[in-house]
Design a protein around this nucleic acid. Structure first.
Lengths: 133, 133
DNA sequence: GTACTAAAATAGGCACGCCTAACTCAGCAG
DNA sequence: CTGCTGAGTTAGGCGTGCCTATTTTAGTAC
């Protein structure tokens, strides 16, 4: 009754993405680091981790660090992929400054459906190696 | 302590936009029509109208219809302007089908900052009357 | 091993935004 | 004028996501 039908909220996707980045730079994600990165309190992180652990997306034991499960990493990578695609579109196509492109991408990545995103990507690609057309 | 600092949520912006459209086609917005348009229950509309009335954005008396105040209309028009700009960008630049462009615009209109939106508009304009560059 | 410290967890609360169920009112039929 | 009907409202509740204050724990210093 909840194998995959349970959709992830934008908030939870942000947590996964943050954990992915922290794992990259230190092999492990600590609660306080996640809190700092997402600008939320530690209890908020604890609550989110409990939720994500319940979905089998992160491994997390009391007073320990958090790590993505295989499934969690898969989703986190997907979110990151969307993030990068959007950010690149904003900078390359629309010439939006890096900082603003970054923060805007953070919001759009939770809103754009895959098929819509594909149009963004295709357009950016066509500009890159087609120069126009 | 709340002359303009109180930001409107995406949800409240949707209500304003819906009322604007309903006023256009029938001079007046009824609770049940708003509910139908936004796919929410009537009590949800009543609650939102109470909120918006408290902010001075709509006029609404018990068991009566709702109308935008001057300030409310100003905001609704602004939201609609963003909506149209985004929708046009999606269809004209990215060749996204009308229906999907419409629903995507509904989401993006609450996320894109004015200065970011300006880039979208400028790009679409340059394509229109510049054909490329 | 005991004491301290800092990180993490629990407890409890608040704001949104939505819902269903139940009640109220306005307007019309008769 | 009585009663019906349906639009609108109130009452109450739920899930999410966040917060502060408090407690628990792990790890380190000594």
């Amino acid at each position: 009754m909840e194998p995959q039908s349970e959709m992830l909220s934008a908030s939870l996707e942000d947590y996964l993405e943050a954990i992915l980045l922290l794992e990259r730079e230190s092999r492990v994600a600590r609660v306080s680091e996640i809190a700092d990165q997402l600008h939320v309190s530690r209890p908020s992180v604890t609550g989110a981790l409990k939720n994500l652990a319940g979905r089998g997306l992160v491994a997390h034991e009391r007073y320990g660090h958090a790590t993505l499960t295989e499934e969690g990493e898969r989703i986190a990578l997907e979110v990151e992929r969307r993030h990068v695609a959007i950010r690149d579109f904003l900078t390359e196509v629309l010439s939006i400054p890096a900082v603003q492109a970054e923060t805007t991408a953070c919001k759009l990545e939770h809103v754009l459906e895959p098929d819509i995103l594909a149009h963004f990507v295709a357009y950016a690609d066509s500009l890159r190696d087609g120069r126009q057309a």
